[in-house]
């Protein structure tokens, strides 16, 4: 059997790894495991009853549909933004590029109250939709707006470096063989950026599933209509229904882990294609 660790002249392995494992266990693994133990007390039947309750299923559906819609929007417009930032020059481009990361840096509560105000029926943006009898804030559409904001940087930042690496020589070769610009994009450029696009989509989607702060201000939070799953956890906690809150949290945790594995797989696939 191979030894646990390969020989090295460098010191500090035991200290560094020991500290890493201790810190990881105390702060992440033990707290996370409490979710499983608490649910175990509830029993399988109890868990199933909570997890498949009407209100829980409705909140999961709202969360999924809104996250998917927001991730699709970001995939389409994120690709255009990445393209524009990589391929064109225009005044102020560097500031625009830096601003793309705003949703990573701006606290979610600030985003939440600002978007709620802007998209309210009398808000700067909401009033134009109100004229056509479309309500955005305090409806599921508002959730999509908040999640689009939260997920905006993901597709741009995953596609940007890959698009920058696409070799112009290949495009020139395709063009000189008579391909039109659209053909070159469709047959040469798109296939090489498509794994990155999918990864960015999945990252935005995964982030949206758990999002709380930016959504609750704009959603209206009507049970069965615009109540997201994380909010339902908070609602159960406020009623001291710890078991119920834990059961929903476990469902969400399993969904998140599945997405994390899928994203790791996508990234592996994407890297492999890049190397080829």
């Amino acid at each position: 059997m191979a030894p646990f660790k390969a020989h090295s002249v460098l010191p500090g392995f035991n200290l560094a790894l020991g500290f890493t494992l201790l810190y990881l266990s105390l702060l992440v693994l033990i707290p996370l495991s409490s979710l499983f133990f608490k649910t175990a007390i509830l029993g399988w039947d109890g868990f199933w009853e909570v997890a498949t309750g009407d209100r829980v299923l409705a909140s999961l559906r709202v969360t999924f549909v809104a996250s998917f819609a927001a991730a699709v929007l970001n995939a389409i417009f994120g690709l255009i933004v990445a393209w524009v930032l990589v391929r064109y020059t225009f005044p102020g481009k560097r500031i625009v590029d830096a601003l793309v990361d705003l949703p990573f840096a701006l606290p979610t509560a600030v985003a939440g109250i600002t978007l709620a105000m802007l998209y309210a029926p009398n808000g700067w943006i909401g009033q134009y939709f109100a004229e056509h009898n479309i309500k955005i804030a305090y409806t599921p559409l508002g959730i999509v707006v908040a999640l689009t904001f939260i997920g905006l940087p993901f597709v741009v930042r995953t596609v940007q470096p890959v698009l920058a690496d696409v070799e112009v020589e290949i495009e020139e070769a395709a063009a000189s063989l008579g391909a039109s610009r659209w053909d070159v994009f469709r047959r040469v450029i798109f296939p090489s950026i498509y794994p990155a696009l999918l990864t960015g989509f999945a990252l935005a989607f995964a982030r949206s599933i758990g999002e709380y702060g930016s959504v609750i201000f704009i959603a209206g939070n009507m049970p069965f209509i615009s109540e997201i799953a994380p909010l339902l956890i908070v609602a159960k906690l406020e009623q001291y229904d710890y078991a119920g809150a834990t059961a929903i949290a476990l469902v969400m945790l399993i969904i998140s882990f599945t997405l994390l594995l899928a994203i790791n797989g996508l990234q592996w696939w994407s890297n492999r294609r890049e190397i080829r």
């Binding site: 996370l32 702060g213 994380p230 949290a249």
Partner: peptide, 17 residues
């Protein structure tokens, strides 16, 4: 892992402990 966990769930696990 903590990046994959919803913020609300992150708070909940500490309440459970």
């Amino acid at each position: 892992l903590p990046f994959a966990v919803s913020p609300v769930v992150s708070g909940l696990i500490y309440v459970l402990l």
